[in-house]
Design a binder for these strands. Sequence first.
DNA 1: GGATGTGAAGTAGTTCACAGCC
DNA 2: GGCTGTGAACTACTTCACATCC
Lengths: 229, 229
Amino acid sequence: MSTPRARQRRLSAATVARLPLYQRVVADAALRGESVVDSTVLGTRAGVTPATVRRDLAGLGTLGTRGTGYEVDLLGQRLAEALGHDRRCDVVLVGLGHLGHALATSRTFLAPGARLSALYDVDPEVVGTTVGGLVVHDLADGVEAASVAVLAVPAGAAQDVAERCVRAGIRALLNFSPTVLRVPPGVAVQDVDLSTELQILLYHLHHGTGPLAGGLWRDLAPGASDALS
Amino acid sequence: MSTPRARQRRLSAATVARLPLYQRVVADAALRGESVVDSTVLGTRAGVTPATVRRDLAGLGTLGTRGTGYEVDLLGQRLAEALGHDRRCDVVLVGLGHLGHALATSRTFLAPGARLSALYDVDPEVVGTTVGGLVVHDLADGVEAASVAVLAVPAGAAQDVAERCVRAGIRALLNFSPTVLRVPPGVAVQDVDLSTELQILLYHLHHGTGPLAGGLWRDLAPGASDALS
DNA sequence: GGATGTGAAGTAGTTCACAGCC
DNA sequence: GGCTGTGAACTACTTCACATCC
């Protein structure tokens, strides 16, 4: 146990945001029975240039083979490790409107290692019901400790809910409310604002503007789409 | 009508992504009865540095007053204009699972100017029902023309749905599926991957890494939170 | 031959710091 | 006095291009 996990350098935020993408492409490649992928196919499938792929993956340590590419199994393993898929982690979800319901029952939302540990709402009609195998608790009864809280609540309630979560010792919030949360230092907030995403798209549509972080204006692959199924 | 809309320079993608945030803060300020805001309060409320606020807003033309700040009404007007809130725009939504349902019934998802014009699904149990005042049509019967399509469908269906939309003449897709879509040039795709957002948050939590595009590790405001009721 | 990994160049975005105006 | 708007410095990210190794 001398150098347990010190293989990878510090990854940039931009790289981290792409790791889940690579992970998905690699898992898919494994399912298709491919044993090796190179940066070009990884890139086209992930919507990223080959150079960026290589730069990103180089940050995980030396795992490619020159002249060949990346071994799918090994790459998948390293990505899972970097993304912390081996670590258990409890997630609580607050707000069981349609969005909360969608998240609680989604098969793909939770990363490997993450487990939904509790659900909360304030609506008496919802409290006590079962969603995705978990009973919905009353937010007023307090929030249990966890690693992450997902906030799928109306804007007006978000700050209050965030404070309850922080008081419960939760240090990472995934915020779906259109609100900028005030949290103490040491608490991470990741905002996902669905209406903002639409507005960004509309802006680029109206102004005919080009590529955006999310990867706009992607080209159709030259060959036919390689039908999966 | 000599220089109708040529007031603003070309805005960077990063700036565009922040405009909706400013817009919200400004609308909120107007509701509170504030008539002027400066870059510092705008910044703290939007979770952005004052310098960035000024740089961003300067791109909309000269609209601040030195020594004072930005007039709320004027700023709101310019932001709305830049975001195209005056332009009508039809949005179709495909997929009425919980997520689609949430989007279709949300009061905040659609930007001003945007109107939901049609809903589609493939599930016979859902087709024909009414959601948010609109009847759900069968996707197999074809997609009507619109400016934007929102894809809230399972990953396996996303590419097919995207192609139907493109065939219907839609040139902007908001994609909630964990899939990289292949589209012809000239079609804009904005990806929103909810599971990726969680994974990014988990990475930063595990590795104790710092600020991210979304704005992690925000500080608590020095004063008490200015309680809005 | 062919693909990785990486210095070096190029581009985009942020922050500083201050001149200019109210 | 105070705050905007912006050149200039800085930092972050991407892309090129090639030496390196299989």
